[in-house]
Design a protein around this nucleic acid. Structure first.
Length: 691
DNA sequence: ATAGGGTTAG
């Protein structure tokens, strides 16, 4: 709560439906499990050290140590236990986890095989915690795990992200001498990567006497995790051996890092070299095609998927639905969606966000209501759809429903909701959301913090924005852009430029277009025209950024504001790209300020030409004529707008009182208490005149 | 029976 107050938040509202998820009970259970493992180490006699060379025989000898089991199993135990293992693993392969466990628990033939099958099946079905409990039970029954068991167990520890548990298992592995086993080492590499320990991963890899395609593929991921995709590619290119999975990994990594084009290129090369893409690979490449909105190639790949009969698979189906919806073919997406046999939550989410991001909110909401097991992303899909189409009230409505349903918002949820607050410049809602974010433990997240500081800046609370920026332990280029833009927009342009100087001195991250735009904006607003021009001219050389139409508009604005009108006019006519209508508008407003009637006429003419294509031009002109008192021209413009079917969507101010926004349009009388409000205003005005 | 790869929101 102290943090909240320091950042300008006046306490958090009670009873707002926030539910804090409790992870305590599982942690307790995990600690109990740790104690059991520690006990295992201490009881040397019960779990004897076995020489690696005798490992195979030890597995079978083990059955002798389990006295009771042996009697139950009887003479044909080995074979029957083998069948039991096969049944269990068969059930697990079809995701029938409950049936498999029930069978396993009822069946007396619990061999090393069936124990291992259950453990690996649980891990593959995302039930790693349960897998660890079964593993513990297995060891307590006196059944000695073998290398295959340990690979699954290590994977489970990695999936749980539990370092201590992993170390205990590693201890057992070393104790029984499996640490040199190829498969075990491979799984240890991934375990370390999951826990962000790239150094240990590398050490294990380097120490391995023999490496296979699995080891190489795992180490490829180490470079991806270190943010060195190019280095990963080098490993991939130089690997002694490649299979479908190595190809698949590289393709998915490109797709996930936003380089969809390279993902597709690699896919084509893979097919050319005679590799058969499998389910995962198709899913990755379709996802890459979705982000490229490449419907032609998308359809071709879809054809191949149909050929091998995988369209009805949940993984491939989800990415196909996404691909069609991103290409605006929602109906085709729906056909694929309906054809998926066993829909998981991802399939539903794909279709919901397909509708949602194509402005079909009713359909999205209806489908959302039908999801059997909603997750975080289901909610977020609905929220981002509303945000994208500026339906802010709905954003808050869904957010409230989400909290009431008990679903924990994620950092994505908060960045969407805060973005809605920022768009409404609603400090009240923003602070409320800030409170919820703190309550749910998101106060040190770079995305949430950036959204918060942007919200405060856009709502005019610069002090709070600055405080958040200063306390952020890590900042990315988006955070820097937000603070610079925020300061400049609120009239602290010099300070914005000082922050940019600090950024230039201390940060080595790449500058992006938006950051430079914010800097130009700041220069424009504190009259530092030459400095602004300097930044603009060095964009390509120093920052390697091609200026876009918004940068050009900013420069026109900068020149016009400072009265360098002829320079501005020349700049606009020399532009290599089509000027935005806002550029002309900026020049026109400069002409007005510096009373250059002749240039104003020329510019106005240009704008009315452009208004054919950009109807908002009429609005601009009508405003300019209105302020010059040229009412005949205003009427003419209004008539044009009416003919073009353009609704008057011009200037409007609003203020929030007790969570209720009150709007004031530039035509008077739109507010229903307008008489009273203007009465009070008149009173205030006369008081001011008296003093 | 196993370790490496998969889909959705930002």
């Amino acid at each position: 709560m102290a943090t909240a107050n320091r950042e300008g938040l006046n306490g958090i509202e009670e009873g707002d439906g926030v539910i804090i998820v409790d992870h305590g009970s599982r942690r307790k259970e995990s600690n109990l499990m740790l104690n059991e493992f520690v006990a295992m180490f201490r009881e040397r006699n019960k779990y004897p050290i076995v020489e690696p060379a005798h490992m195979e025989r030890d597995c079978s000898r083990n059955k002798k140590t389990v006295g009771i089991r042996k009697r139950e199993v009887g003479g044909r135990g080995g074979r029957e236990a083998g069948i039991a293992g096969a049944i269990v693993s068969g059930l697990l392969r079809y995701g029938r986890v409950g049936d498999a466990i029930a069978y396993f628990e009822r069946n007396p033939f619990r061999s090393l095989f069936s124990w291992t099958a259950v453990i690996s099946g649980l891990v593959q079905n995302g039930l790693s915690f349960k897998a660890m409990k079964v593993f513990l039970e297995m060891v307590q029954h006196g059944v000695m795990p073998n290398a295959v068991t340990y690979t699954s167990v290590i994977r489970a520890c990695g999936e749980l992200g539990d370092f201590n548990l992993g170390m205990c298992v590693l201890g057992l592995i070393v104790k029984v001498g499996f640490e040199r086993n190829l498969s075990v080492s491979n799984s240890l590499i991934t375990f370390n990567l999951r826990l962000n320990d790239t150094v240990s991963a590398r050490t294990i890899f380097d120490r391995m006497q023999s490496k296979d395609v699995v080891s190489w593929t795992a180490i490829l991921d180490m470079y991806v995790q270190m943010g060195e995709l190019a280095e990963a590619r080098r490993v991939f290119d130089e690997m002694p051996e490649r299979n479908e999975i190595s190809w698949s990994t590289m393709i998915s990594r490109y797709s996930q890092s936003g380089d969809a084009e390279e993902a597709v290129n690699l896919f084509i090369r893979m097919v050319q070299q005679g590799f058969k893409p499998n389910k995962s690979c198709f899913a990755s490449v379709v996802s890459a095609l979705a982000s490229l909105e490449a419907s032609v190639m998308g359809r071709i790949v879809h054809g191949h998927i149909l050929k091998i009969g995988m369209e009805r698979d949940a993984f491939i189906g989800s990415s196909l639905v996404d691909m069609y919806c991103k290409c605006r073919s929602i109906k085709e997406g729906r056909v694929v969606f309906d054809s998926i046999l066993e829909k998981n939550v991802v399939c539903w989410n794909s279709m919901v966000s397909g509708y949602s991001l194509n402005n079909q909110h009713e359909e999205a909401k209806e489908l959302f209501g039908m999801i059997p097991q909603k997750d975080n992303i289901s909610w977020n899909s609905l929220i981002t759809g509303y945000l994208e189409y500026e339906k802010f009230d709905e954003v808050f409505e869904v957010f409230d429903d989400m909290l009431l349903s008990g679903e924990r918002p994620s950092k994505s949820t908060f960045s969407s909701v805060l973005c809605a607050c920022a768009s409404l410049a609603s400090l009240q809602r923003g602070k409320n959301s800030h409170g919820k974010a703190i309550k749910l433990g998101f106060h040190d997240d770079i995305f949430v913090d950036t959204a918060l500081l942007d919200m405060y800046a856009k709502s005019g609370d610069v002090e709070s924005a600055k405080k958040i920026f200063q306390r952020m332990p890590k900042r990315n280029e988006i955070s820097w852009t937000a603070i610079i833009q925020g300061l400049a927009e609120n009239g602290f342009a010099e300070e914005a430029l000082a922050v940019f100087d600090e950024f230039e001195r201390t940060m080595s991250i790449a500058r992006n277009e938006l950051l430079i735009l914010a800097v130009l904006f700041a220069c424009s607003h504190c009259g530092l025209v030459d400095k602004g021009l300097h930044y603009f001219n060095s964009m390509e050389k120093v920052y390697n950024i091609q200026p876009n139409d918004r940068h050009y508009t900013c420069v026109v604005d900068m020149l016009s504001r400072s009265g360098r009108l002829s320079e501005a006019e020349k700049f606009i006519s020399d532009m290599p790209c089509e000027p935005e209508i806002q550029a002309w508008a900026a020049l026109l407003s400069g002409c007005k300020t510096y009373r250059n009637e002749r240039m104003a006429e020329r510019v106005a003419e240009k704008i009315s030409e452009l208004a054919e294509k950009h109807p908002e031009g009429y609005l601009l002109l009508s405003n300019v004529y209105a302020s010059a008192g040229r009412w005949l021209d205003v009427l003419h413009m209004r008539k044009q707008m009416k003919e073009k079917g353009l609704k008057r969507s011009g200037g409007c101010s609003w203020i929030e009182v007790r969570n209720q926004p009150h709007f004031f349009y530039s035509q008077d009388g739109s507010h229903n208490e307008f008489m009273e409000i203007y009465g009070v205003l008149e009173l205030v005005r006369s008081e001011m005149l008296l003093t």
